[in-house]
Design a protein around this nucleic acid. Structure first.
Length: 561
RNA sequence: UGGGGGAUCGUUCAAUGGUAGGACGGUUGUCUCUGGAUCAACUGAUCGGGGUUCGAAUCCCUGUCCCCCAGCCA
């Protein structure tokens, strides 16, 4: 009777088999190994959920390990941001925070061991020459003239590389494998390069730095990782990963590859996101339009929705592009359950209730969340002059338009039925003000005579409402496949010029005066919004996280076609 | 043209020789003081061609298409 857990993807199946075979005495240990060369994005979220989630599922552990073997690209700023983002997502590495750079001494010793075994050599060829000697996809490579140096000479040269006697690029340490291998990674891969650069954690201790291939498997081994989960592009590095571990005769983890996350209308490449940041297409890594975890957080995404999203997309080896609509669905599903409802008007249109007393103010009861009665109710002031949404009035309503129009009656949410009796326009013919009458008997929103109304509008009381800035975000790219650019252009040419729209004269109900950065609301009938860190008591700033599904917009669109 | 992977509804994941199923999307309807949410229904796929088998998405043969690899990046 083993209480084995149902596998839900191919990685879990492999682990179940290992568990049955008692491969690691029932131990499951994974790791999440980011390079601190940028901010984490939604693609990393998939890896994080798989790495931490798989360990958790089998009562195992997951380490956080910074893969920091290239000082040119890495920064402490990124390490700090990465840690914050993983925590925010809801995962905990406890005290298991490791750095590949902490293994540099061990890696150096192992390199010496390989040299002594005749399995590694110092090569004086230049980078260009190494490339030429490597051959091509179809032609095998040829051996470097330095390939057969004596062990003594290699030991001496390698030590002097470490001592800083040579300039950048002048020499490398290479594994001696097979220049005719069909897998190019096996054609004497570089293990160490000379980089006269200080390391963000090691300072000036080193001027030779190990490459990814020489670092990763050994780091996994040192940490006792049982299953080293990574993305598909490392598949043909696996023979090399295995080769190093076999030569060293150390604990041998198993590398398993899965497909990385691609999202329509988005980019999940740290390098490309960095380019958007550095070229000023966005306002930093945490811009709310960015698919970085910090950007999504500022935008108002919940960690739960992201974890649920990753759960739903599954794990496989197929190259796939996930529809952004699924991410948005997960977001709305979560926010719908937890976000407090409030009323806010983004594009205000003044409405005067002609028959409502000048100075009267009523405090009306409003439901905070129809999905969750425990969230209670609140009072919202109602008075003679209101703002409604410009979209909620049409002088000449098209078919299937249910909202306000001349002579038509609608409901103001939680308030009264009103009827439009007069339309005031400016000299250009733009509607600037509506005069309506209300039916006092419909207080609360229901007519005692049972008459129905087809639309319910949100509103705010003009003299009570708070002014707010609202930032509307649209998809960052205009094309579903953002990489599909014209000849001579790159993905940045697909950046959506309308991805940010700032509305400065919006009105929100007065109860929002104490809203704090990060607070999330549903603006009824509009969407989910959160308070931006730029917000203050004096000037409220909201970000639109995601709009509500909009059936009318869909109808209107098909009517136009 | 070498090597390594992959191909199932529009998208994505499942079905491990035995009824091709779920989710998202789309459509229609229900309900509703959010054109939201809910609920229901519908839509819709095994890359092609052979073969094995009582039975094939799954096994075999063959072809096609897609992705990754020629960094001293990870």
């Amino acid at each position: 009777m083993t209480n084995s857990i149902q596998p839900t993807n191919f990685i879990h199946e492999i682990i179940e088999q290992d568990l049955k075979a008692n491969k690691h005495k029932g131990r499951v240990h994974t790791r999440f190994p980011p390079e601190p060369n940028g901010y984490l994005h939604i693609g990393h979220a998939k890896a994080i959920c798989i790495d931490f989630g798989t360990a958790a599922k089998y009562n195992g552990l997951c380490n956080l390990r910074f893969d920091d073997s290239n000082p040119i690209k890495e920064k402490q700023e990124y390490i700090d941001a990465i840690k914050e983002d993983i925590r925010w997502l809801g995962f905990d590495w406890e005290d298991r925070e490791y750095y590949a750079s902490d293994y540099f001494d061990q890696l150096y010793e192992w390199a010496v061991q390989l040299i002594k075994a005749g399995k590694a050599y110092v090569d004086d060829l230049s980078a260009e020459e190494i490339r030429e000697y490597r051959g091509t996809l179809t032609e095998s490579g040829k051996e470097s003239p330095y390939r057969n140096r004596s062990v003594e000479e290699n030991l001496d040269l390698f030590e002097r590389m470490k001592a800083g006697e040579f300039s950048d690029g002048s020499r490398v340490l290479r594994a001696k494998i097979d220049m005719a291998a069909s897998n190019i990674n096996m054609r004497d891969p570089v293990m160490y390069r000379i980089l006269q650069k200080p390391h963000h954690r090691q300072g000036d201790k080193w001027c030779i730095y190990p490459t990814y291939d020489w670092t990763h498997g050994q780091s996994d081994s040192i940490e006792g990782i049982t299953h080293s989960l990574c993305s598909l592009e490392f598949e043909d590095h696996r023979p090399l990963y295995d080769w190093f571990l076999e030569q060293l005769g150390v604990f041998h983890p198993q590398q398993i590859e899965f497909s990385r996350l691609n999202l329509s209308y988005m980019i999940t490449s740290t390098r490309k996101l960095g380019k958007l940041v550095h070229e000023g297409n966005v306002d930093g890594w945490a811009d709310p339009r960015m698919p970085t975890l910090s950007g999504l957080r500022r935008r108002g995404y919940t960690p739960e929705s992201i974890r649920n999203f990753v759960e739903r997309i599954g794990v496989a080896k197929t190259d796939s592009v996930i529809d952004i609509a699924l991410l948005e669905h997960c977001l709305r599903e979560d926010l719908n359950k937890r976000a407090q409802r409030v009323m806010a008007v983004l594009y205000p249109l003044k409405v005067i209730i002609d028959n409502y007393p000048e100075d009267k103010v009523e405090e009306l009861d409003c439901v905070n969340n129809p999905e969750d009665a425990s969230m209670g109710t609140r009072k919202v002031p109602f008075s003679r002059v209101l703002y409604i949404e410009q979209d909620d009035f049409r002088e000449e309503p098209p078919k299937k338009y249910f909202r306000l129009a001349p002579g038509r009656e609608v409901r103001l949410r939680y308030a009264y039925f009103i009827k439009c009796v007069n339309v005031i326009k400016d000299e250009k013919g733009k509607v600037v003000e509506l005069h309506c009458t209300y039916d006092p008997k419909t207080q609360g929103g229901d007519a005692p005579d049972g008459r129905k109304v087809k639309a319910t509008l949100h509103w705010v009381s003009a003299k009570h409402a708070l002014n707010a800035e609202v930032r509307l975000y649209d998809r960052l790219f205009t094309k579903a496949n953002s990489n599909e650019a014209e000849e001579g252009k790159d993905f940045t040419s697909n950046v959506n010029p309308k991805s940010l729209e700032i509305l400065s004269s919006c009105w929100v109900e007065p109860g929002l005066k104490d809203a704090k950065p990060g607070d999330r609301y549903q603006f009824e009938r509009l969407g989910y919004f959160c308070v931006d860190p730029d917000s203050s008591d004096k000037a409220l700033v909201f970000n639109r996280t995601v709009s509500l599904r909009d059936t009318w917009a869909k109808i209107e669109k098909t009517q136009k076609v």
